[in-house]
Design a protein around this nucleic acid. Structure first.
Lengths: 219, 219
DNA sequence: TATCAGTTTCGTACGCTGTCTAGAATCGGT
DNA sequence: ACCGATTCTAGACAGCGTACGAAACTGATA
């Protein structure tokens, strides 16, 4: 007999191997030697399956307690865990923009993030706002990273082909002279522009920290 | 005779009115009193149509020059424009995680963002990193906002029904005592947690500004 | 004006999707 | 051995993107 756990695990395996688009009811059923409609004894809709998948992998972002005492270290640890999670399950990015993370593991993860702010001595509202901004930065980074990694590889086009195919059009725009700041960056590339995650994160944390003693917005 | 512009405009209208899922080749064709395959004389694949739609609305994020001299004001202006754009075309969020913004209007928008950093006197690499972090924060905020707005409204469920339907399950988790920080926030809500955008943006900008004089990461 | 190449439009079809319906098979408990 | 409930299944429906090949229409040339 099938189990909900097996269905979710299989769906995750398919998504890991071939992306979220490959996860169809029929495909997951086939993978389990079952027929499509059989899955509907365990889930109500495909949406539910996706939610279960999301919460299942969210467990990988939960770290073992206790968190580091220093709030920055705690947040950095949680952030790194989240990055690893996305690296293992890139399809998580596709789900981010579609659902709120409200499963047991998702909530555990949020609770841990909140607890990281404990040492800061800020009130509940401020912690919530800090959390929101922290999450927003992380989401944005992860989405951008996914897009950048995905676009050259799509359709089996490797880097060389992409350079040959996509660039004539972009080059035309670039060489128009309308983009004086952007043009040299695209033409020559920007050395050292990768791996900006922790640098940006530190800016965000600096801004939040600086706002504590002083005024409201830090300005 | 059909034109590419008319197709794109119609697709945008459909997306504005009924969301991106409603934009199918057949639907757009019907809206233009044409048959599905006719559109393929003007676009190569549906992907192209989506890219054209994205760049078309990107024009709305471009502001009239000159930008404010103060870099923070300039960025704030651009950010607000982008928020308005997303409010007018919420389906933009669905596209963010799927494609890079490389049309003429998208590039214009990036160029303007880059030019906002002119007054800061930072080198090219730093400006690029600032831009990335700024964009990441914006993307994350916009995605979260879209998710939060979408989830209660989905399936025609209004707020009351959502409270009655979704919460028993969440309430069970919350009342388990496993989430001491999260529980009171969900039960009582967090007063004043909305409209956090500009506050968070200021933290990000503060962090970037503070890193200029001092060390590398600001720490 | 008649012809012809090229573009635009269209009907049909294939394989895929989520999921509704209705019946068959299987199970645990009495 | 029976019965109600659960699990499984086949089939169907409406929708999707788009490949294929033919029709209709266009403007330019003979």
């Amino acid at each position: 007999m099938l189990t909900r756990e097996a269905i979710v695990a299989t769906a995750i395996a398919v998504a890991d191997a071939e992306g979220l688009d490959a996860v169809s009811i029929r495909r997951v059923a086939t993978e389990l030697d079952a027929r499509a409609m059989t899955l509907y004894s365990y889930i109500e809709r495909k949406e539910d399956l996706l939610a279960l998948m999301a919460d299942e992998i969210a467990a990988e972002a939960v770290v073992e307690e206790p968190l580091p005492g220093d709030w920055r270290e705690a947040l950095l640890l949680l952030a790194r865990r989240e990055l690893e999670l996305v690296r293992r399950h890139p399809w998580r990015v596709d789900l981010i923009s579609h659902r709120v993370a409200v499963g047991p593991n998702g909530l555990r993860h949020v609770e841990q993030k909140l607890s990281a702010f404990d040492g800061l001595g800020v009130d509940r509202l401020t912690a919530w706002r800090f959390l929101a901004t922290f999450n927003d930065y992380m989401t944005g980074f992860v989405v951008r990273q996914a897009v950048e990694r995905r676009s050259p590889r799509e359709q089996g086009i490797d880097d060389a082909e992409r350079a040959a195919l996509a660039e004539p059009y972009v080059r035309e725009l670039i060489e128009s002279g309308e983009f004086p700041r952007l043009a040299p960056m695209i033409e020559q590339g920007v050395q050292g522009a990768d791996d900006n995650f922790e640098r940006g994160l530190n800016w965000v944390l600096d801004g939040m920290e600086g706002s504590i003693g002083g005024g409201d917005t830090g300005r």
